Simulated scan of single mutants.
Amino acid sequence: MTVVSPESPVSPMLAKAVAAVPEPDSLPGGLQYEPKWDGFRAIIYADGSDVQIGSRGSKMLTRYFPEVVAQIADQVTVPCVLDGELIVRTGERGSERLDWEALSQRIHPAASRVTKLAEQTPASFVAFDLLAEAGESLLDAPLADRRARLEKLMAPLRAPLHLSQTTGDVVTARRWLEEFEGAGLDGVVAKGLDSPYTPNKRTMLKIKHHRTADVVALGYRIHKSGRGVGSILVGLYHEGTLLGVGGVSAFSDARRLELIDELDDVVERDEHGEPLTGEGERNRFSSNKDVSFVRLRPERVLEVQYDQMEGMRFRHTAQFARWRPDRDPESCTYDQLEVPVAWDLNDVLL
């Protein structure tokens, strides 16, 4: 039996992108549909007194969310391991939505700042899976059983600890995909009811409002005006090697200048403190263009919107969506990308 604890942390089960909400009979045993929360993935380890919060990359987030730790220690009396999402809510009652910007600011090195933000923008935890209970690992149990036990465990708990709702009705799931966007949610997730919990494997299905990817910043080019970042070069890992996949651009004048400061701490420098540069790829469109770039240490993850892939690269320039301080660069791999269903061109041409 697999031991699940902070000393032997479990990697979260992941999802692969699909274009539309699948039918319930897509998997034997049927599907369970859930809202896709737009927050920090978190594995909660609670033993009745001590509480630890693991991130998607198994790094501890405990120190950044003291208010959540206090609530779990107070309310969760049965030793357990929960899978879910940390979120921050904003707005008035009746028009509340998720606030990603406020959530991302919670990752701060200064303890005084962490304490202040815990009071100003308190986080909530939304549970959607139970990985262990009372010392028993549930990783091999089917989702239907894990969910039933999770509902029983969460029943007496109160805000800011929540249970994510589910449905087995595909019509409801498709309605969620449209309606919940207004509350800042990210889409819908589909899970096999007979499926065990598979750490670090993309066995869930996610349907998002936009086609997005988490990528690693590799470098940046100075804007043609000579001021600020013109484009960020980004990459993905493939079999342990970081490969360039394209660029991100279309920044405003003000944003270009902000990015210089935001990326300064990951700029590669020589022994004299001067930025190191690299030479980008040339093609028939850029033969006379300066393709040099400032090199960055591959430590910063950003989420981008893209239209489609062409081979191993983005076909067109991607759009910056946001920084992802909760993601480890090594987790940014090609298998997160949506792979279009194979279709014979002869069936398209008339």
Rank of each mutant, 00 (worst) to 15 (best):
Ala250Thr: 12
Gln305Thr: 04
Val348Cys: 04
Phe293Thr: 02
Glu299Met: 06
Ala19His: 12
Ala148Lys: 10
Arg202Trp: 10
Arg324Ala: 13
Val4Arg: 00
Lys16Gln: 10
Ala321His: 08
Asp47Phe: 04
Thr166Ile: 11
Ala134Arg: 09
Leu263His: 04
Arg324Tyr: 14
Lys208Ser: 05
Leu150Tyr: 06
Tyr45Glu: 00
Glu178Ala: 13
Gly39Tyr: 08
Gly57Met: 03
Thr203Tyr: 12
Thr317Phe: 07
Arg322Thr: 03
Glu178Arg: 14
Leu218His: 06
Lys152Arg: 07
Gly280Trp: 00
Val294Ala: 00
Glu262Gly: 11
Ile87Ala: 01
Glu310Arg: 03
Thr277Glu: 04
Pro275Tyr: 05
Leu349Val: 08
Ser225Trp: 02
Leu117His: 02
Met60Ala: 15
Ser104Tyr: 01
Asp326Asn: 03
Val188Gly: 00
Met204Thr: 01
Ala190Thr: 00
Lys191Asn: 04
Ser5Ile: 00
Val248Leu: 06
Arg146Asn: 02
Asp99Trp: 02
Pro199His: 09
Ser26Leu: 05
Asp194Pro: 10
Asp140Phe: 07
Asp261Phe: 13
Leu117Phe: 09
Glu178His: 06
Ala141Glu: 08
Leu337Gly: 03
Lys16Pro: 05
Pro325Gly: 10
Glu23Ala: 14
His162Leu: 09
Ala134Met: 06
Met204Asn: 02
Val341Trp: 07
Gly135Lys: 01
Asp270Pro: 02
Ala73Leu: 02
Ser58Cys: 08
Pro275Gln: 03
His223Ile: 10
Pro12Val: 08
Ile107Leu: 07
Ala318Val: 01
Val76Met: 06
Ala190Asp: 03
Ser164Pro: 15
Leu61Arg: 07
Tyr237Lys: 02
Val341Pro: 05
Phe320Ile: 12
Glu338Phe: 10
Glu101Tyr: 11
Ala123Ile: 02
Phe285Gly: 12
Val234Tyr: 03
Leu263Thr: 05
Asp25Gln: 13
Leu185Gln: 03
Ser286Leu: 03
Leu259Gln: 02
Asp270Phe: 11
Asp83Thr: 11
His209Tyr: 06
Leu236Arg: 04
Ala46Arg: 01
Leu130Lys: 09
Ala318Ser: 06
Asp328His: 04
Val170Phe: 04
Asp328Gln: 11
Asp99Ala: 07
Gln120Cys: 01
Ala213Gly: 11
His316Ile: 11
His209Pro: 02
Phe40Ser: 13
Asp264Met: 06
Ser331Ile: 12
His210Gly: 09
Gly29Gln: 10
Phe128Asp: 10
Leu103Met: 06
Tyr237Glu: 02
Tyr306Lys: 00
Thr62Val: 14
Glu279Leu: 12
